[in-house]
Simulated scan of single mutants.
Amino acid sequence: MKRLAIYCGSATPEDPRYIELAHEVGQDLAERGIGVVYGGGRLGLMGAVASGALEAGGEVIGVIPEALANSEVANHDCTELYTVGGMHERKQRFTDLSDGFITIPGGVGTMDELWEAMSWAQLGYHQKPVGLLNSFGFYDDLLAFNRKMADVGFVRPVHQGILIAAEALPRLLKLMAEYRPHTPIFQMKADDL
């Protein structure tokens, strides 16, 4: 994995652990020679990921919608900064530029990015690992909900391994490196669906 898309919040929570985590993720990836593709912002966890990677000498590629770039939240310190027309183009660019995805804590936009990466993997638009860093138990309830969808039958057994979760980045990166693509829906027969 040469580059990973990092999905995270642009907010700065009161609890400093979240900003520290984001900074450490960026730094750790850079030290491993893994480039960061992210939302292109300079605020919140987004900015902390970029700062951590840049301070460690890493590659940081930002992808920001024009509306946000014009509101002065763009991080012009990135190695490369792409301004795109909207969110759909942004997520496509994340997919095109990265070898996988890691979600760290965030809000609604972060969830949108995570679920789309999982959905696209399930369908067959990409075969890249989708990681979830569950630091501080932030995503415990989301993981339980994902299990419930599988238990009820809304996630086929062949697709239940798409979401790769771990509490620490080294373990998550190891699991992502071991990921073997599943059979996407586009290649399945009607009887298998």
Rank of each mutant, 00 (worst) to 15 (best):
L43H: 08
G124N: 07
P181K: 06
E14S: 14
A67Q: 10
G26N: 05
V155D: 06
I185Q: 09
E59V: 11
S51M: 11
F154W: 15
I185D: 01
E20Q: 15
E14K: 15
F186R: 15
V158R: 15
V63S: 09
P170F: 08
G41K: 09
A190S: 14
A56C: 12
G57H: 10
T12M: 09
D191E: 14
G39F: 10
V130Q: 11
D191S: 13
R32L: 08
C8A: 05
M188N: 02
L172Q: 02
G52L: 05
G35Y: 00
A56Q: 08
A11E: 11
A165V: 00
I164G: 00
G107R: 10
V36K: 01
E167H: 12
F94I: 06
V36Q: 07
V84C: 10
K128Y: 04
R17V: 00
P157G: 06
Q160Y: 08
F154N: 11
V25I: 11
Y139H: 13
E59S: 10
L169G: 07
C8I: 02
S119D: 08
T103Y: 02
D151Q: 14
Y179M: 01
A53V: 11
I162R: 04
W115A: 10
F154I: 05
V63W: 03
M46S: 09
R180A: 13
F101I: 02
A22P: 02
A11T: 12
A166F: 02
T83S: 07
M46C: 11
P16K: 14
I162Y: 04
S51K: 15
S10T: 14
H76E: 13
M87N: 05
F94R: 11
T110D: 04
Y125M: 14
